[in-house]
Each structure stands twice: as C-alpha cells, then as structure tokens.
Nucleic acid binder design. Structure first.
Length: 278
DNA sequence: CACGAGACCTGTTCGC
DNA sequence: TGCGAACAGGTCTCGT
C-alpha cells in the first residue's frame, strides 16, 4: 500500500489542489455514503453520517501513513493500507467498482475512498491522538537526530527490517522504502538493531530521508494495477528487482522472506556480519 | 519481549 | 486455454 511518500503526495494534492483538481480546504461536507461497512473503524455507521454532515474541512495533512482532515469539530482519518486511494470526482459521478466511502462536498465535488482489497479504514474522532498517538517519530522531522535514533536502536535486539516497519518505532516506512533505505545504507535486513554502530545509525537515518525525499519528489511509486501518478518505481534500486544487477556493484539482487514480507537486498553491498552473534 | 502464523480481502501473474 | 498457487505498498491478534 501507499507508504509515506504516496500518502504525502495525496495529502498535498487534496490540500493544495492539482491539475484540474480543486483544493478541498474550506469545502463543507454535505453528506456521506458508506458502501462497505467494515471500512469504518469508528464511530458506528449510525453515528458517522449525521455527525460528519455540516462540518467544514479546515486542514489536510499526513501523520505516518495516515491522512487526516481537521474538521470544524472532529478529525476524519484515513489509512489506505494496501490498495486504498482517495479521489476527487464531480458530484453525481457513477459509482466505480471498489468505491467504499463517498463524501458529498459543496461546489459539486465528491471525495471518494476506493479500496479494492477492503483493508483500508476510516475514523471520525474528536481527539486525533486516539488514532495516531502511538506512532513513532516522523523520519523527516528535523527533531529526530542520529543520536536519538542510535539510542533507540540499542534498546532492542530485533532485526532492523521488521523494526523499521514497526510504526511505533518510526512512522511512515513500508516494505518498499525500508528495502531501498537499507540498501542505500549498506545494511543487511537481518542485522540486530543493537549491533549498529553510531556511524551506521547516522548513515541509516540519512538513507531513510534520502529515499523518502526522492519518493516524494517523484510523487511516490505506482506499481501493479494501483496507479497513482507517481513514477518512483522507475528508480528502485532493489525492490522487486530480484536477479537484476545491483546499481552499485552489479551483483544480482537477492530475495528472502523476513517477517512474512518479501525482502530485496544486495548480498555484496549488504553482507550479514553477525553470524553466531559475533 | 520477540517471533511466526493466520486473518482480513481482491486482483494479477506465474507455472504446469 | 485453464486452473491453482503465489504474490502484492499493511496491520492486528494469537500462540509459543
């Protein structure tokens, strides 16, 4: 599903508007149509529509992989999970196959949540931290330093890849950007977190920021049939490039499974140096 | 605490 | 061509 750069791209598009697409800040919600019950995490579907109706969108942003809409009284949050997408369409546009929630806005606009795999979720809450309060720091936040990352890495012996996918450790990374960042930092995905040196922790933070910034600059990645307009997929170094040459050394990219996730890395640039705990 | 498996879902691609 | 298996950007829960 969309990771930080894809969600950031969507948030910016909705907040600022894009080609032929109006900005949504200032629009009033006139009604809502929930088409798949389980898409709504909370409150109940009976409470959702009357409570949402009439509120105005005051701001739109991103925290981790969550998209948030600050409304007159409440916060509306979306998590796109694997296949979710948010689309602006003219009012009364016919339903499309995987539409799950349609908001009717003023100015004859709809905001459509489309999600083939139905994993995505929506919340309407009065306190935003009830949903995003347990997230770890934003990787692009200047307040996050190599020193603080280093000390948090050393608080656990978990493997670095699953740790970076843990949203309570760091918010926003997913399978693509973790593989890309670890390759750039020349770290094996199974490296125990507490074995990283200070220098490696610094390189890891810089690598994470580089791949995220590059991803945002390319409007995110569009892969498989879930096309969102970005083209960062053309710049992957290792993700889904099994058997192709490493851009650094030419060694064929390897694929293993880590935490049930496909994991791509260069065995030459990212050697595993911790056999027998040594 | 840390890890693995299973669940939630649909669609595409791959191998026989 | 057909059909099942494997796989997919995520996260939660449960058992060990």
């Amino acid at each position: 599903m969309p990771e930080l750069p894809e969600v950031e791209t969507i948030a910016r598009m909705l907040r600022l508007g894009g080609r032929e697409q109006p900005a949504l800040v200032g629009r009033r919600i006139l009604g809502a149509n929930l088409l798949w019950e389980r898409t709504l995490a909370e409150p109940s579907s009976a409470e959702f529509v009357p409570r949402l109706t009439g509120q105005v969108i005051e701001d739109i942003g991103r925290r981790g992989k969550f998209l948030y809409f600050r409304l007159t009284r409440d916060w509306l949050l979306y998590h796109l999970r694997m296949s979710g997408d948010l689309l602006v369409r003219p009012a009364r546009t016919p339903r499309e196959t995987h539409d799950r929630l349609v908001l009717e806005l003023d100015d004859d606009i709809q905001l459509v949540f489309n999600d083939a795999r139905k994993f995505g979720r929506v919340w309407l809450v009065d306190e935003v931290d009830r949903v995003v309060g347990s997230l770890g720091p934003e990787p692009l936040d200047e307040g996050l330093t190599a020193e603080s990352l280093f000390s948090r890495l050393h608080a656990t012996h978990r493997q670095i890849k699953p740790l970076l996918l843990d949203q309570t450790f760091l918010a926003g990374l997913g399978n693509i950007y973790v593989d890309e960042a670890l390759n750039l930092a020349k770290l094996h995905p199974l490296t125990p977190a507490n074995r990283l040196t200070m220098e490696q922790a610094g390189r890891l933070l810089e690598s994470i920021r580089t791949v995220l910034r590059d991803g945002i600059a390319r409007n995110g990645a569009s892969i498989d049939w879930v096309y969102r307009g970005g083209d960062f997929q053309n710049y992957f170094r290792v993700y889904q490039r099994t058997g192709e040459p490493c851009p650094e050394c030419g060694t064929p990219i390897a694929r293993i499974v880590v935490g049930q996730r496909g994991t791509h890395f260069c065995p030459q640039c990212q050697p595993f140096l911790f056999l027998n705990g040594g």
